[in-house]
Design a protein around this nucleic acid. Structure first.
Lengths: 222, 222
DNA sequence: AGGCTATTTATACACTTGCACAATAAGGCC
DNA sequence: GGCCTTATTGTGCAAGTGTATAAATAGCCT
């Protein structure tokens, strides 16, 4: 029974603050990624997402035409962050091509790219690539961009060693190196505790140098 | 309006046949995998699964305590088939260790293991490994078993070359080789049309031989 | 200060979901 | 052939889904 001493507190409408549009969209996208990472696509209901973002479900429709579009934007945001971080390691100036390649590999095989949450998101979304052509295309573009970066560095590395690989050889090297990075990334994300810190990166660098036929770096092995 | 000339055909109960228990369970598991592969976990409702299996939804509860258990059994079945096929290639007798390793890699990088549907299923389930510890454990066991197989063949291959690697070196080789296979598998499943038939296997074999420091096979290159 | 507008809440709706359970008939057994 | 078990169907239900839309209020503008 309501206490008449209190000024009729029932049916009170929830207080709220107006945030900027860009901020709200970002919060909603982040909340979406968090929901998907934690409970999968099935658990990512609009109400759950809204709750996590600190708003009510209805608001989502004010910023996104529907759930589909929200998920697409979330996936795009995820891919954007991943490739952005991955490529950043290639921008080092004043270093030999070989050092830059090693730095690239090392960056891709440590936190924050080796991360269970990111992997979970990647797997969840990519699992739908078979059914959703737009997802498949988004992936292929990201993959090709990534592989082209790799191919460019490989060409520089080999060039510095006075070697002139033809296009086909370059392509094969890029595919193999990509596979090494991807494979170690998967293993690291799924069972990080099975590897000591830096171990995956060390294995990756060694494997890639073997693939390229580079002589082991002097003075670094124990 | 029902036509009275026909002998009251309304309210007719659906005809059915009793199948053996094992058969029905398999059908339901297969229907589950098909549903997940096509529409993801979200689209795999009991009714959709039952429809695909040619039964009604209620029957599922007669064979499985709930949806959760059905999904778990489906995942276990998927993993079982994958590793079974993968290991089969290692059983060749009368061949050199190096040939067996190459056969193993080749088998893993062609159909039916390179397959968009299988990959989609793997990704969908593994995406939940972060949230579901039982899934994570199932994966790690499968992964370790796989890696141990690899390690054993690697030891044989190197032994045949009169090399005696220590345990640590062996472990690193196995991790790297596993990564190469996994990475190429992912790339092949996601964009099969980007690679000519046998190309991935060729790249994989070459990369692995480079990793192990094996001399290129005579008489096979171009 | 007071009004305007767009952001936000709240409610309604049709539909689906997993699960429970009663009704039914298929097919082996005597 | 008739009976009995149980595999299978069909229906019902409460909870949750995405979407639509009306009602309210926060905060900028003058």
């Amino acid at each position: 029974m309501p206490d008449a001493a209190h000024p009729a507190p029932m049916n009170e409408r929830r207080k709220f603050r107006r945030e900027g549009e860009e901020r709200r969209r970002q919060d909603l996208i982040d909340a979406t990624l968090d929901s998907v990472a934690e409970h999968g696509l099935e658990g990512a209901s609009l109400r759950a997402i809204a709750l996590r973002a600190g708003v009510t479900a209805g608001l989502i429709r004010h910023y996104f035409p529907g759930k589909e579009e929200l998920l697409q934007e979330a996936y795009a945001a995820l891919m954007g962050r991943m490739t952005e971080q991955a490529k950043a390691a290639l921008l080092m100036e004043n270093s030999s091509p070989r050092q830059r390649l090693a730095a690239f590999v090392t960056a891709n095989l440590n936190a924050p790219i080796i991360d269970a949450r990111v992997f979970s998101l990647w797997a969840t979304f990519i699992g739908r690539a078979g059914a959703d052509p737009s997802l498949a295309r988004a992936h292929r573009e990201g993959y090709l961009g990534f592989r082209n970066e790799v191919e460019a560095v490989v060409a520089e590395v080999l060039g510095a060693e006075q070697r002139r690989p033809d296009a086909n050889e370059l392509r094969r090297h890029a595919i193999a190196i990509n596979a090494i990075i991807d494979g170690l990334w998967v293993e690291g994300c799924l069972a990080a505790e099975m590897f000591s810190p830096g171990e995956l990166a060390a294995i990756g660098v060694k494997a890639i140098e073997a693939e390229l036929g580079l002589a082991p770096e002097r003075g670094k092995d124990k």
